[in-house]
């Protein structure tokens, strides 16, 4: 119990650094030129994707550290996954960014983890990260579904008129 608190404390103290590493790793999945552009420009409107990734990774990390429940985790991953759901990447890549968090934690706490005996706690942390990944997967599926729904909705917006008019024989077929 004591140890656990210690690991959490440690993580919380280093959260900023971990988040930064993670963010960097996520950005690095994009082409180099894009990485440069998204990392550099900090204006939230000129660079909405970079900004969302930056803010989103931090939100997720905080949620993980607080041991947030499933619902909260979903909320935290939504912003990022919403973006990745429409970018040119495979589903695994779109969601896989979550696992980079494990690497980020290990990279940041490398020394402490090697010396200390946080193995069990670390394993638990990793389980939480897995939970985030599952949540991300849910959100991803949902957003993809939304995309197809939007396609249909767009057609639907015309339908009342279209049907109204064809029923009355005013639109020539074709």
């Amino acid at each position: 119990m004591v140890e656990r608190a210690v690991l959490l404390d440690l993580l919380k103290r280093r959260a900023e650094a971990i988040a930064t590493r993670w963010y960097d790793a996520v950005l690095a999945e994009y082409p180099e030129q894009t990485y440069a552009a998204w990392k550099r420009e900090s204006n939230r409107f000129a660079n909405p994707v970079g900004h969302s990734l930056r803010a989103g990774t931090r939100t997720i990390l905080d949620a993980v550290l607080e041991g947030a429940d499933a619902e909260a985790l979903r909320g935290a991953v939504t912003d990022i996954v919403r973006i990745r759901a429409v970018q040119q990447m495979s589903p695994s890549a779109a969601v896989g960014f979550v696992f980079r968090l494990k690497d980020a934690i290990r990279a940041e706490l490398g020394d402490e983890l090697r010396n200390g005996s946080f193995r069990d706690e670390m394993a638990e942390m990793e389980q939480r990260v897995d939970a985030v990944a599952l949540a991300a997967f849910d959100v991803f599926a949902e957003q993809r579904e939304l995309v197809s729904e939007l396609r249909i909705n767009e057609l639907k917006r015309n339908i009342p008129w279209a049907t109204g008019r064809t029923n009355r024989g005013v639109v020539e077929p074709g």
């Binding site: 550099r40 420009e41 900090s42 204006n43 939230r44 409107f45 000129a46 930056r54």
Partner: peptide, 14 residues
Amino acid sequence: RTELRKERGLVYGT
């Protein structure tokens, strides 16, 4: 003209 808002740390003018 893009606003140079300090959100976090150093900010570069585009």
